[in-house]
Simulated scan of single mutants.
Amino acid sequence: MFYQIEHTVGSTIYFVICILFILVSRIPRTNDGARLWAAAIFFALLARLSLLLHAQQSNLELTLVSYAALSVLEKALLVAGVLQFYGLKPGQVWLWAGTLAAELWLLLVLLTDIPLWAGRASLVVFNLAYLGCFAFVIVKHRQMMPIVFMTAAAVAAALLTLHWLSYPLMYLMPSWQLPGFMIGTGLTLVLYLALLAAILFSLQKRLLDAEEKALELAHHDPLTGLKNKRYLHNIFEKAVLLANRPHQLMAIFYIDLDNFKPINDKAGHGTGDEVLKVVAERLRSSTRSTDICARIGGDEFIIIATQLENHTQVQEVANKLVTQLAEDVVIGNKAYSLGASIGISLYPENGNELKQLIEQADAAMYQIKQAGKRGYKFCDSDPRSH
């Protein structure tokens, strides 16, 4: 009676876990290990059901071989799942060759006069080999995907390995059958729940990585790799905090390239794109890691320079930008002459909001354009051409 209750409870648990794995495996782009583990727990369920179905039969050999054959398939799929989880496909050839050999051996036990104890011993050996391989793969490749749930699965597999060593006691000591199967059910439950948690964790990580990548793309100019205008608005408040530190300034540099349109018109947009990439690299090299470089459209760029000590340092940055952007840009075997007109606004002297500061710097840049291009100008000051 207790024997049937234990296997009924065990079968029910395996069925629920199987359904959970099937549901998770249907999520798009889920690691293929989930499908193999769903199949593994399905065969574990069939193995338990075979014990229930044969409980009233006197053919002990058929019961043993049925249970063993299904159990071997479960453990093989368990190992195949962990190999797939870590992307280790080459090892699966030997795995399935060994599984085929194990199933053929069990068939021989059923059809020939091979002693029943040999079938029991082979079941123990097969399970020890597969569970040991499962735990070994996780330990060996723990650096590839250091998930605590996989460690828990490896520990459960190691404990199941020890538990299978006690399998002969079930036949030498019938009183051990019920607690033995209960312990095995508990360890199997821990093993598969840990694997399910690992799959869910990998899904969560994938979603977070995708979200981070989407945010990264949303905040970057696809051509130059610089930040875009949206990012400037998102980061401005943090930049203001730095500007509010004692004796520090924040400057907005509005940069418009000189002589860029003729390059696009004569050499083509492909060459123009390459020129913009070179310009972006020069802006990066001319600024500090605390500064923010952005392309806001066409040949227009903005730099937010933070942690500046005084107006003289602002001028030094402006002079460096004018010098760097005045150098010829070589694309292929041809050099293109550019230059830049730069308008500068300061926080909080020229405004407290980014939109206002950009408008002030844009107006100053326009005055440089009218004064002959190639230079920089502060808001409300005389043009300084270089």
Rank of each mutant, 00 (worst) to 15 (best):
P179C: 04
P179G: 11
P179Y: 13
G180S: 08
F181E: 13
G184T: 13
G184K: 02
T185G: 11
G186I: 09
Y192D: 06
L193R: 04
A194M: 02
L196C: 11
A197S: 14
I199R: 03
L200E: 08
S202A: 15
S202P: 09
Q204K: 15
D209W: 07
A210M: 09
A210E: 12
E211H: 13
E212P: 02
K213D: 12
E216P: 01
E216G: 12
L217Q: 15
A218I: 02
H219K: 12
H219Y: 13
H220G: 10
L223C: 01
L223I: 00
G225I: 05
G225Y: 05
G225P: 07
L226W: 05
N228R: 01
K229W: 12
R230K: 12
N234P: 08
F236A: 07
A239V: 14
A239M: 14
L241Q: 15
L242H: 13
L242F: 06
A243I: 05
N244M: 13
P246A: 07
P246S: 08
P246W: 04
H247F: 11
Q248D: 11
L249T: 07
L249G: 02
M250G: 04
I252F: 07
F253R: 01
F253H: 05
Y254H: 08
D256K: 02
L257C: 05
D258P: 02
N259W: 06
F260G: 04
P262L: 00
P262V: 00
N264S: 02
D265L: 00
D265A: 01
K266W: 12
A267V: 03
H269N: 02
V275M: 03
V275F: 09
L276I: 00
L276D: 10
K277R: 13
E281D: 15
R284F: 04
S285C: 10
T287R: 02
R288N: 02
R288F: 02
S289L: 14
S289T: 09
D291C: 00
I292C: 07
R295E: 02
R295W: 00
G297P: 01
G297F: 04
D299N: 14
E300C: 05
E300T: 02
F301H: 07
F301R: 08
I303E: 03
I304W: 04
A305I: 03
T306W: 01
Q307A: 12
Q307N: 15
L308M: 06
L308N: 03
N310F: 05
H311V: 09
H311P: 05
Q313I: 08
Q313E: 14
V314P: 01
A318M: 09
N319K: 15
K320I: 08
L321C: 00
L321M: 04
Q324P: 07
